[in-house]
Amino acid sequence: MKQLLRKVFLADLIEGLRVTFRHQHPKQIVTEQYPQERPKIGERYRGAPRLNINPDNGETLCIACDLCALACPENLIVVGWERNPETKKKELVTFTYDISRCMFCGLCEDACPVDALELTQDFEMASYTREGAILDRQTLENGLLPTRYRF
């Protein structure tokens, strides 16, 4: 009898609608208004790469050991270096990082022995050209510039 009454009065559907209406309260809104409202990015987020420099003297921390290039599954890191004739040490000359092929797995970051290469919280990496996705040493050290939109 109860079942029949429930059926006649559409109890099951009304119960469902009650849930829907409960969620229409303005407090329940979770949509993020993205360009105006910046998302909270986790501290460990693996985004755009950065080549850290020593803040005291402005020199690169990279010791050109090539471990990141060896660890990369996609072989997208190229480290260019030359040996300083006076100190007999390797010095970093060029560093390219192709984010168009990168899958942000973080293996290069893990491999770096001096914490020079780091994946940052920057996630806006769009560019208008394919070449724009290949980052050189200067871009990696200064960070990606904000995209300038062509309207």
């Binding site: 979770v30 990015i41 987020y45 797995c105 973080g106």
Partner: peptide
């Protein structure tokens, strides 16, 4: 309707992943 609610709750899990390992979907 359930799609929006499911996605909303899934977001909590993805946020835990993001904080734990730095990626939301392909986590490694």
């Amino acid at each position: 309707t359930p799609l929006f609610y499911c996605m909303r709750e899934r977001e909590y899990v993805l946020n835990i992943y993001e904080k734990y390992c730095g990626a939301r979907l392909t986590t490694h």
